[in-house]
């Protein structure tokens, strides 16, 4: 049960960390790296409020061991802003009030980021399919969908913006 050394990319920066086998990514981020943007709701992979992107795939950090990061790249909500400029998804969430309590928000934004990276021009159904990965108990989803659709429309007009990865 010796801690393992892992190398990974954290929000764009190369890091080396020491983690024990029973440490899940949610606690690693929140307790060890002080990145509390990933929230713990159900501890069972169901709600998605702990979602982060690992190699650009949405992962529930409560269901992913810290050691699994070795050799991979993780993006948390804290890594989405670039030099204090908000990502267009964050901007759209603000404009459409696509959150209420905000507990699901980090996860929802990251799921949508992964969607846009995988499917640059998604339909409304695709948006619904992707955000059905996570639970929002507050909003009834309409304003989250509106925020996503606004971005899709905007990107369609201005051409593909450079995706932050």
């Amino acid at each position: 049960m010796i801690p393992m050394e892992i190398d990974f990319i954290l929000n764009g920066r190369a890091v080396t960390g020491k983690v024990s086998g029973n440490l899940l990514l949610a606690d690693y981020l929140r307790e060890h790296l002080d990145l509390k943007g990933a929230k713990i709701g159900c501890s069972r992979g169901a709600c998605g409020s702990c979602t982060v992107l690992v190699n650009n795939i949405p992962i529930a950090a409560c269901s992913y061991f810290a050691f699994q990061l070795d050799g991979k790249s993780v993006l948390t909500i804290e890594g989405l802003e670039r030099d204090t400029t908000l990502h267009d998804l964050q901007q759209a969430f603000i404009e459409h009030a696509a959150f209420q309590c905000g507990y699901c928000t980090s996860g929802m934004i990251l799921v949508l980021k992964a969607m846009l990276d995988h499917e640059p021009n998604p339909s409304r159904d695709t948006v619904v399919e992707w955000i059905s990965s996570n639970i929002c108990r507050c909003t009834g989803y309409a304003q989250i969908i509106a925020a996503a659709e606004a971005i899709i429309a905007m990107r369609a007009n201005t051409g593909p913006t450079e995706a932050v990865s």
């Binding site: 990933a38 909500i77 802003e81 603000i94």
Partner: peptide, 8 residues
Amino acid sequence: ALEKVTGR
């Protein structure tokens, strides 16, 4: 808004 969309 800002604190919630940034996870802060």
